[in-house]
Amino acid sequence: MARHKEFDRDKALDAAIGVFCEHGYEGSSTDALLTAMKISRQSMYDTFGDKRSLYLQALKRYNTDSILSIIADLKDSEHPLDALEAALLAFASRPFSEASRGCLGVSAICEFGRTDADVSNLTDSASAMLGKAIVVLLEDGQRKGQLSTEVDPEVATQFLGATLSGMKVSARNGASPETQRAVARLAIRSLR
Rank of each mutant, 00 (worst) to 15 (best):
I39K: 00
K144I: 12
K75T: 05
H4L: 14
T35D: 10
V183T: 14
E98T: 12
A182P: 00
E22Y: 05
M44E: 02
S93I: 11
G145I: 11
N121G: 07
I134E: 00
L89Y: 03
D46N: 15
N121L: 14
S40N: 05
C110F: 10
S66Q: 09
G27P: 04
L59S: 06
V119D: 06
S170H: 10
A15D: 06
S125H: 15
S93E: 15
A162L: 14
F7D: 03
Y45L: 08
S120Q: 13
I70P: 00
S107K: 13
L68P: 00
N121Q: 11
L33F: 03
M167Q: 13
S120T: 13
D46V: 04
K168E: 15
E78D: 15
A72P: 04
I39W: 02
Q57I: 01
L59E: 08
M167V: 12
L68F: 01
F112T: 05
D10R: 13
A175P: 06
S148I: 05
D50S: 14
R3E: 12
L88D: 00
K11W: 04
F20N: 04
A12R: 03
Q57T: 03
Q42W: 11
S170A: 15
Q142M: 05
E22L: 13
Q146K: 10
G131W: 08
A92K: 09
R143V: 02
K51W: 05
L164C: 06
S69F: 03
A83I: 10
G113C: 12
A90K: 15
N173P: 02
G131S: 13
M129A: 14
G105I: 05
L59C: 09
S40K: 13
L130F: 15
S40D: 07
L130E: 09
T149N: 09
A92E: 07
Y45E: 05
C110G: 10
T179K: 09
G145K: 09
